[in-house]
Amino acid sequence: MTFRVDGVPVPQGSKKGFVVGKRAVLVDDNKDVLKPWRRKVAAASDIGHTFTGPVFVAAVFYMPRPKRPKFSLPGVKPDLDKLMRALGDGMTDGGLLADDSRIVSQFIHKRYASDSNPPGVRVLVMEAGEET
């Protein structure tokens, strides 16, 4: 199955911890932008099917091009692994994956957005076989 999420991809950030009363609370330090991004991923990946076994995920994140890019490819923040963490959690939130621990193989890229590929992410998810 394939899907696309439009918008600037947001990485799963670090956690902040604090105490409320006698309870410890953890929150994402970028929750104001992360939560809407994960909701978009969840909505796009909600196809009425849940992968319960091992899966292969291929994803291409299209990042906005700065006015003066440092490199020809987006070798700058955000980190690719943190973008993938947000994607995996969003697919779990949307019910596409029983849990993002089901991802056993992945092929991920960061590229600059263009007219034909605006900011966002293109995703392929398929059952993993022994050969993946």
Results as ranks from 00 to 15, higher is better:
M1F: 13
M1W: 14
T2Y: 15
F3N: 11
R4P: 06
R4D: 03
V5H: 07
V5N: 03
V5M: 02
V5K: 03
V5W: 02
V8C: 08
P9W: 01
P9D: 04
P9G: 08
V10R: 04
G13W: 00
G13N: 04
S14Y: 01
S14L: 05
S14F: 07
K16I: 05
K16M: 09
F18T: 00
F18V: 00
V19D: 08
V19L: 09
K22Y: 10
R23K: 12
R23S: 13
R23P: 02
A24E: 15
V25C: 12
V27W: 07
N30G: 04
D32Y: 05
D32T: 13
V33H: 10
V33K: 15
L34P: 11
L34E: 10
K35M: 15
K35G: 12
P36M: 02
W37F: 14
W37N: 11
R38D: 07
R38C: 06
A42I: 08
A44T: 02
S45G: 04
S45E: 08
D46F: 13
I47Q: 14
I47R: 15
G48E: 07
H49G: 11
T52V: 10
G53H: 07
V55K: 02
V55P: 00
V57R: 02
V57M: 00
A58N: 06
A59P: 06
V60H: 13
F61S: 11
M63Q: 14
M63Y: 13
P64W: 10
K67W: 03
K67V: 04
R68I: 07
R68T: 09
P69V: 00
F71N: 09
P74Q: 07
P74H: 11
V76L: 08
V76D: 09
V76F: 06
L80A: 11
D81S: 11
L83V: 05
R85Q: 08
R85T: 06
T92V: 02
G94W: 09
L96D: 02
L97M: 01
L97V: 01
A98W: 00
S101D: 07
I103P: 00
S105L: 10
Q106P: 02
K110P: 05
Y112E: 03
Y112A: 04
A113P: 06
P118K: 03
V121A: 05
R122A: 15
R122M: 08
M126I: 14
M126V: 14
A128W: 13
A128V: 03
